[in-house]
């Protein structure tokens, strides 16, 4: 088997995650789909690391994880505070950002 299959898997997962962001309305699920996209890119990075024979790709994946952790913390805090004031976790309910 050619390890390039990992890249196909990564592309597939990324696409599914992106579609999830577009389709789901629950902010938490939407956020999970974002995490899925990040994981898919991490897989691609690890595969590239293997392809090139150095560890830089893994380092970048590591940093991606750290940033994702920070992002999740802040994002979930935002979701919680929105839920507190609006009693809804649906992104469609926060639609005041229009003319």
């Amino acid at each position: 088997m050619n390890p390039v299959n990992y890249l196909y898997l990564s592309a597939l997962l990324f696409t599914i995650g992106a579609s999830g962001v577009l389709i789901r309305r629950n902010a938490i699920v939407l956020f999970m789909c974002v995490e899925l996209m990040l994981n898919a890119s991490n897989l691609a990075l690890v595969t590239f690391s293997r392809m090139h024979g150095n560890l830089d790709g893994q380092i970048i994946a590591f940093f991606t994880m750290v940033v994702a952790a920070a992002e999740v913390v802040v994002g979930l805090a935002i979701i919680v505070s929105i839920f507190r004031t609006r009693h809804s976790a649906s992104v469609d309910d926060s639609n005041l950002m229009k003319l």
Binding site: P3, L9, N42, V46, S49, R50, Q58, F62
Partner: peptide, 16 residues
């Protein structure tokens, strides 16, 4: 995915 990482030689990342 964690197992995939390990399989590709990224053991540390898999554990993380």
């Amino acid at each position: 995915l964690a197992v995939c990482y390990m399989a590709q030689g990224a053991v540390f990342l898999g554990v993380v």
